Simulated scan of single mutants.
Amino acid sequence: MAKYVYPAVFTKEENNAYSVDFPDVENCYTCGNSLVNAMEMASDVLAMMLCFREKEKKPIPVATPIKEIQTNADSFATLILCDTTDYPLVECEPNAE
């Protein structure tokens, strides 16, 4: 369990909502109904996905330098911090039924 920083691409959607994608972390994306909400959701989804990888002993991807992240006119890249040490996901087990 550790702290991580990854670049995320925030894209402005309708009604001031934002979608968020982490180019370096497979299947890691979220959205929020405002920029503040999208930032909170981004940190949460990043922690969840990396927690799964830690628990499954899968390699943690290397973060791309933020200057190398490409965006368009409706998006921007920023760094997101997460901490998997105290992540509240029960057992961090995907697809648990």
Rank of each mutant, 00 (worst) to 15 (best):
I60N: 07
K67W: 00
Y87S: 11
Y6S: 11
T78N: 04
Y29E: 13
A17D: 13
K3N: 15
E54H: 13
L50W: 02
D44L: 08
C51M: 12
A38D: 02
F22T: 11
V45S: 10
A47Y: 03
A8W: 01
Y4N: 15
K57Y: 00
M48F: 01
D21T: 14
T85F: 02
N16F: 07
P94F: 01
N72R: 07
P59A: 05
Y87K: 08
F52V: 13
M39I: 10
D44T: 07
L89E: 12
V62L: 11
S19E: 04
I69W: 00
V36K: 08
I66R: 05
N95G: 06
F76M: 07
G32N: 04
K58Q: 13
K55P: 03
Q70S: 15
N95Q: 01
P7S: 12
L79T: 07
N72W: 02
D21K: 14
F10Q: 08
T11A: 10
S19V: 03
I69F: 02
A77F: 00
L46P: 12
A17C: 11
L46H: 07
M1N: 15
I69E: 09
P23S: 14
V20I: 07
E93N: 05
E93T: 02
T64R: 08
E54L: 11
E14P: 01
P65Q: 07
S75K: 03
L89T: 05
I69C: 10
E40T: 10
Q70M: 13
T84L: 10
A77Q: 00
C28L: 11
V9L: 09
I66F: 02
N15K: 14
M41W: 00
V36F: 00
F76Y: 01
I80H: 03
A96P: 00
N33Q: 10
S43T: 12
F52T: 10
L81I: 09
P7E: 08
T11N: 05
L89R: 07
Y18W: 05
C31I: 00
D24M: 06
T64H: 08
T84M: 11
D44W: 02
F22C: 14
A73R: 12
A77W: 00
S75D: 05
K57F: 00
I60F: 05
L81W: 04
P59D: 09
A42R: 06
N16R: 11
K57A: 07
E54V: 07
S75V: 04
E40W: 01
M48R: 04
A17Y: 02
Y87A: 12
F52P: 09
N15C: 11
C82V: 05
C51T: 12
R53T: 06
E26V: 09
A17T: 08
L35P: 02
A17K: 10
T64K: 10
Y4Q: 14
Y87F: 15
P7M: 09
